[in-house]
Design a protein around this nucleic acid. Structure first.
Lengths: 188, 188
DNA sequence: TTTTATTGATTGACGAGTCAATAAAAAACC
DNA sequence: GGTTTTTTATTGACTCGTCAATCAATAAAA
């Protein structure tokens, strides 16, 4: 029953299943078989298309990164005045898509992976650089020297992720918390 | 060659070896044999004293938490004026012992583990509660309503950990960054 | 002789990656 | 247009390692 042109479909299904499975397990202790089963295929096929487990994880990470980038970009282009960009960037980082349990769990594990998998470290650095760049540009309309504030806000955003995982803070107040901090850093 | 009273010695050696091994691997993908070898004993003995891998990890986590607590407590008692407590608490969180690669790596992995191991989640919540409590008390001398600022600073501290792992920010400026933010939140 | 310390050997399970086999679409060839 | 060949899709079965956990055996102290 081989329908042609399955490769992109299968890859997408596997990536989605990977994120879901990581979210369900709360860790990277997920077998290729589990991922493949959730994606509706055999584990052999998963290996056929991705080559190995690492590459599946990396692909999942790229996917999440792409989703995140899209979220931020659309938030920025929807900005009328440049003064609104700061709030837009921050709120984009607290969009529901970023706070789905599976996504948060994947992020957490990618941080761990970044310690030993060079490609994961590279991808995470891209994310951090882009976030810092976005914050810098946005802050330029509120403060003369935006770099320190941008670094602080970047770290703060990451930190709130951790709290969200443990259920210590509700994510609605999370964005407002960061915004309040941003205003304080910008000198009101 | 059984010398008596080995249990506490062996346990301590295993805990220390666990942290070191996690740091070296950058993840929890560490075998009991590796840990035991580094601690200078057989894997069977590790199982004999701890019962299982999970308990070894938990013990390592408790150890790190204890070390951290001691760091904060000594920093607080060394404070002459109560106004200095805020800076003391923050700086304690950026003490060299907290930023050793092995320790940071262990923390990261404990965050991941807290998603699926209830006892790990409990321990992490104790840490967060204690940090928030310390920040709250310290902030009372600078601001009338300390809770929001304490929550923000707690998240910020955690966030800087992530940056440190990826080498994006040098840990010397990290503490100063948080302090600057604290002053901004306290209204100068 | 009972308790504590210690390990080598073993078991049993699980999981990543491989491979040969099957089947259908497409392309090449006559 | 029909036949052959190649390419793409797909899987079940298998291999090979690894590793957590167990256990029986050894030895020294109490």
């Amino acid at each position: 029953m081989p329908k042609l042109g399955m490769e992109p479909v299968r890859r997408a299904a596997l990536v989605q299943a990977t994120v879901a499975e990581i979210g369900a397990a709360g860790s990277l202790d997920v077998t290729v078989s589990q991922i493949a089963r959730r994606a509706g295929m055999s584990s052999a096929l998963a290996h056929h298309y991705f080559g190995g487990k690492d590459q599946i994880f990396l692909a999942a990470m790229r996917h999440i990164l792409r989703e995140y980038s899209a979220e931020v970009r659309s938030a920025l282009t929807a900005c009328a005045r440049p003064q609104d960009r700061l709030a837009a960037v921050i709120r984009a980082n607290f969009a529901p898509s970023c706070f789905e349990p599976a996504t948060v769990s994947a992020w957490l594990n990618f941080y761990v992976q970044a310690q030993s998998v060079p490609e994961a470290a590279r991808l995470l650095r891209i994310y951090q650089k882009r976030l810092q760049s976005n914050l810098c540009h946005a802050l330029r309309w509120h403060v003369t020297d935006p770099l320190p504030a941008a670094q602080t806000l970047g770290a703060l955003i990451d930190g709130v992720y951790l709290r969200a995982v443990l259920g210590d803070c509700d994510m609605e107040t999370g964005a407002e918390q960061v915004l309040t901090c941003a205003r304080a850093l910008a000198g009101e």
